[in-house]
């Protein structure tokens, strides 16, 4: 797929410097052999059917620890379904998921304290204020009260929510909800963070802030796994990518490897999901031209 030099170059551009310590063995050629410890996530034979429809179609995937990992795919590819099953919010029909070497369904005690989750399409406790929400979730996670309050204050500050911290979450905007959800996911300093479309509805300034927070977080050796539709963002943030389409993994590996010879991740993605010639087709020849009707 990719020739070696280009592949290394590609990583060197985007990877934060400390990755040389995470992966001392040189260029990553296959997932798994890079690190000393267990992979962040190991998925084997994961299936999920909703009635007749197969949302996730036998996924095998190993994601290395200490990386910024992007999960991309068209609408309905199964990203949300996969992330829900990996984080223990949805029971798979078949397959196993291990996080940091612990089985999600057999050993929830080890897993739940290690992960942070920002799901998509699920609500928050919206009748709490932003600060109350953080204080609630932090204490549920068993952190000491004053530590929760300290961390909550700092997170609210960094994410630009201090001004709205006493407002009920029900009155938050879409982007503010994403940010408070992110703060809730980060509060207990998890080793692995799962974010489903964390940048959806977030303004450019806040997106930059979130990037900063997440980059600092991965720099300390933690893992971020997030789904997104914005290829430019994935390309500039991630050093590892998995492409999902119709419930199957189409490609996964270091960014440069997945991108291959294509000029950008966008092109590689379109090629992988086979959507290149389904462009602005001739079917819509009535559209435009300023002639109403």
């Amino acid at each position: 797929m990719a020739n070696e030099p280009e592949h290394i170059e590609g990583r060197a551009e985007t990877a934060p410097p400390q990755h040389s310590t995470v992966a001392p063995g040189g260029p990553a050629t296959a997932p798994g052999d890079v690190m000393a410890g267990p992979p962040a996530v190991r998925i084997q034979g994961l299936w999920k059917k909703f009635g007749e429809q197969t949302a996730v179609h036998g996924i095998d995937l190993t994601l290395p620890a200490g990386r910024f990992i992007g999960l991309v795919g068209p609408n309905g590819a199964g990203k949300t379904t996969t992330l829900s099953m990996v984080t223990g919010l949805l029971r798979p029909d078949a397959g196993t998921v291990e996080i940091g070497g612990h089985d999600v369904w057999q050993d929830p005690v080890s897993v739940k304290s290690r992960i942070g989750v920002l799901p998509e399409g699920l609500r928050l406790f919206e009748r709490l204020s932003g600060r109350e929400l953080l204080s609630y979730i932090g204490r549920l996670r068993g952190l000491p009260g004053d530590e929760v309050d300290k961390r909550a204050g700092q997170l609210l500050d960094v994410l630009g929510l201090s001004g709205a911290q006493h407002k009920l979450v029900v009155d938050y905007s879409t982007g503010m909800r994403k940010k408070i959800g992110l703060a809730a996911a980060l509060l207990h300093n998890p080793e692995i963070l799962f974010l489903d479309e964390p940048f959806e509805g977030v303004d450019p300034v806040s997106a930059q802030t979130i990037r900063g927070v997440l980059e600092r977080y991965t720099a300390s050796g933690a893992t971020v796994i997030f789904s997104s539709h914005v290829m430019e963002l994935v390309e500039s943030l991630c050093d590892w990518v998995a492409v999902l389409a119709a419930g199957r993994i189409r490609a996964d590996g270091p960014l440069a490897e997945v991108r291959g010879a294509a000029p950008s991740l966008q092109d590689a993605f379109l090629e992988l999901v086979g959507a290149q010639d389904r462009g602005a087709g001739a079917d819509l020849d009535w559209l435009g031209g300023g002639r109403a009707r």
Binding site: P108, R123, L140, R141
Partner: peptide, 15 residues
């Protein structure tokens, strides 16, 4: 009564 915000409860129940 929690609605789908129950995920927050679920993600903190391990035992």
């Amino acid at each position: 009564q929690d609605t789908s915000a129950f995920w927050m409860v679920a993600s903190t129940i391990a035992t």
